[in-house]
Computed example of a mutant assay.
Amino acid sequence: MSAFLGLGATIRYEATLALRQRVLWLSLLPLTALIMVLGGFPHGRNRSGEMAAIGDTALLINFLGSLGIAIALADRLAGQRRPGLRELFGATPAGGGIRSLGVLLGPWLVASIPSALVLSAMGAWLTITTGEPELSVAAAVGLLTIVAPGSLLLTVLANVASLLLPSTVVRVLLLPFWYWATVLTPLIPLPTVARTVLSPLGDYQAAQWLDVTLARQDGGWLHPAPGFLHGVAALGITLATTALAFLVGHLLLAENR
């Protein structure tokens, strides 16, 4: 119970600090506006159906919005190495792992608000204009299975990388890495996890639950036809990778305490 209380307190404290950071909003709000323009808000850019429009918007938010959040929050774990903070943290009831988790989750939850509002508002608008309440549910599904997992994964990876490299370098490298992992096309002859069940973009979740057509499905184990098991597998791989990356970051921090 004390661990949950410590985690909750850390999340609230870090979220409050993030809410007051003007730089965070100055970087994320213009990006959110760009997503709305590119995504054809509130109708969406996919004309095959409202459900698919929500799915396409969720994928767009995951690609652009997750990148912006990770760049903005890339130095949260590395910030715990600042002089004097180790003694300050030692006086708190939360353990090292709980504290690191709260340091990441608090700002990430705050930074995710604009993207969540865009997709939720789109679902609500389409529900009102079409009279189909399942579209609001679809927006929630997009947030929980596509946007949130991808965003959290990239944020955790950025923070772990910042424990090994300067945060400025990590921020520069995030764009080519995320492009490689999510939307790299066959025109560029490089091995990539993009358009496979290993990709954190959420293609298979969007295909299974939001009527989005996959760009590639040749029947191979990396490119299977969309289905419930493949959608769950893709989501599970993203979540498992996030947990593994966080564990690595926690161990790196523990070595320096």
Rank of each mutant, 00 (worst) to 15 (best):
M1R: 11
A3E: 15
F4S: 01
L7A: 07
I11D: 03
R12Y: 10
Y13Q: 10
R20H: 09
R22K: 12
L28D: 05
L28C: 01
T32G: 13
L34N: 04
H43V: 13
H43M: 13
G44Y: 00
R45G: 10
G55W: 01
L59R: 02
I61L: 14
S66P: 01
S66A: 07
I71D: 00
A74F: 02
R76P: 02
A78E: 08
G79Y: 07
G79D: 03
G79A: 11
L85Q: 12
R86Q: 12
F89K: 01
G90W: 14
A91T: 09
T92A: 15
A94E: 04
G95S: 08
G97V: 15
I98C: 14
R99Y: 03
G102I: 15
L109Q: 08
V110T: 09
P114Q: 13
A121D: 08
M122R: 05
I128Q: 06
T130N: 01
E132K: 09
V137Q: 10
A140I: 11
L144T: 05
V147E: 07
A148T: 04
L153P: 00
L154K: 10
L157I: 14
A158E: 12
A161E: 13
A161Y: 09
A161W: 14
L164A: 12
L164W: 13
L165K: 13
S167L: 09
S167N: 07
T168G: 15
T168D: 08
L174T: 03
P176T: 10
P176W: 01
P176N: 10
F177T: 12
Y179R: 03
A181K: 06
A181D: 09
T182L: 12
P186D: 00
L187Q: 11
I188Y: 08
A194S: 09
T196H: 12
L198M: 12
Y204V: 13
Q205G: 03
A206N: 07
Q208R: 03
W209I: 15
L214P: 00
A215N: 13
A215D: 09
D218Q: 08
D218K: 10
G219Q: 08
W221C: 02
L222D: 08
G227R: 00
H230F: 12
A233V: 05
A234T: 02
A234S: 14
G236H: 07
T238D: 11
A240G: 12
T241V: 14
V248S: 11
G249A: 15
L251F: 09
N256G: 05
R257F: 08
